[in-house]
């Protein structure tokens, strides 16, 4: 008998649904309120905080972590975890940059041929990431090894492969058209923000409307039951990790373009920690279950906002860690209180 489902608790949850007071509204939407509070507070003490540039910076800088976190949300929804995300970013960036740099087109003015070549290089990068995702998913579901171990292995392998592709040295893309891709703006909006909006919309659609996401959630909620209702756990798991890997690849390629160089040893390093934090803040349960895409979006922006606030107020590195911890703890607490 489930001792946790005491009548008192059930009653409480029933009450929650019917309650419609002002305070409970705040409680039910504590995350946006916390967010709002953070922004109001900062608009007071952070110089020029309320500006389009701050928004522009935050969103652009949050871009790679946001994409990784979106993929991570689905992975965590399935009851797994993926710590190979940073290495997958590196591998896809390395493949893309290496192939792109092969052609003399790299430094020529924009042309149809150049765009095709770039697209071809990016596709190869996505493919490489896809292989990593495939490996993750297959090892996890076929051999029933802990996701954290599998993705740790893939992390080592992918990172090594990325370094082998580039040789010993980071590959500089300075002066190539690839660097311009990172600074591209369409009607004033940075390309990162546009891709991000597209990715968030796509993931919202996937999470809410597709059979795939429902099955992912079912596996995360109760793996045994999912097997017994005939869900193809192998296929769905592989799908989740491939999806995550492809999102990482886009993040990796765009990071390479933004920085104008690919450092296979450093690119995407530790991004999994920020991404996992973003998912945690967003309220997706780590034991698996519903993927909260919008929560993750909030979480990713929040995590980046901390860095922005630290930079803008010139808070020294040592204090910045404490600030980060405080904000994250408060955020997790706020969303947990629902």
């Amino acid at each position: 008998m489930p001792d946790s489902d005491t009548p008192a608790k059930l009653l409480a949850s029933a009450n929650m649904q019917h309650a419609t007071g002002g305070m409970s509204f705040v409680k039910a939407h504590s995350m946006p309120f916390f967010f709002l509070a953070l922004i109001v507070l900062n608009s007071i003490f952070t110089p020029s905080f309320l500006s389009i540039d701050t928004l522009d910076n935050t969103l652009r800088q949050a871009f790679p972590m946001m994409l990784v976190a979106l993929g991570m949300t689905m992975v965590i929804s399935s009851g797994g975890i993926d710590i190979s995300v940073g290495a997958i970013m590196a591998v896809s960036a390395a493949v893309t940059a290496r192939i792109f740099a092969l052609s003399v087109l790299a430094t020529t003015p924009v042309s149809v041929l150049l765009i095709l070549w770039m697209a071809c290089a990016i596709c190869c990068g996505l493919l490489a990431a896809g292989v990593c995702g495939l490996l993750n998913g297959m090892l996890i579901s076929k051999f029933k090894i802990q996701p954290i171990i599998v993705t740790l292995i893939v992390m080592f392998v992918a990172r090594s492969v990325a370094q082998m592709i580039l040789g010993e040295l980071p590959l500089s893309l300075m002066g190539t058209r690839f660097e311009d891709l990172g600074r591209l703006r369409i009607l004033g909006a940075p390309i990162q923000v546009l891709i991000m909006i597209g990715a968030v919309a796509a993931m919202l659609f996937i999470a809410k409307k597709t059979v795939f996401a429902r099955r992912v959630e079912a596996i995360g909620e109760n793996r045994r039951a999912a097997r017994l209702v005939g869900i193809n756990i192998f296929r769905v798991t592989v799908g989740v990790y491939v999806l995550c890997a492809v999102l990482c690849a886009i993040a990796g390629v765009m990071e390479a373009a933004r920085g104008g160089r690919v450092d296979a040893g450093r690119l995407g390093m530790f991004i999994e920690l920020d991404a996992i934090a973003a998912v945690a803040i967003g309220g997706t349960a780590f034991s698996g279950g519903r993927a909260r895409i919008l929560g993750t979006v909030f979480g990713a922006v929040l995590v980046q906002l901390v860095t922005v606030i630290v930079n803008m107020n010139d808070i020294s590195y040592h204090y910045s860690l404490i600030l980060k911890a405080v904000v994250l703890v408060t955020a997790v607490w706020a969303q947990k209180d629902k």
Partner: peptide, 14 residues
């Protein structure tokens, strides 16, 4: 590069 670039962008904006 990426960390420095992020920091610089935010400092400029501030």
């Amino acid at each position: 590069t990426d960390v420095a670039m992020t920091a610089m962008e935010n400092i400029i904006t501030s």
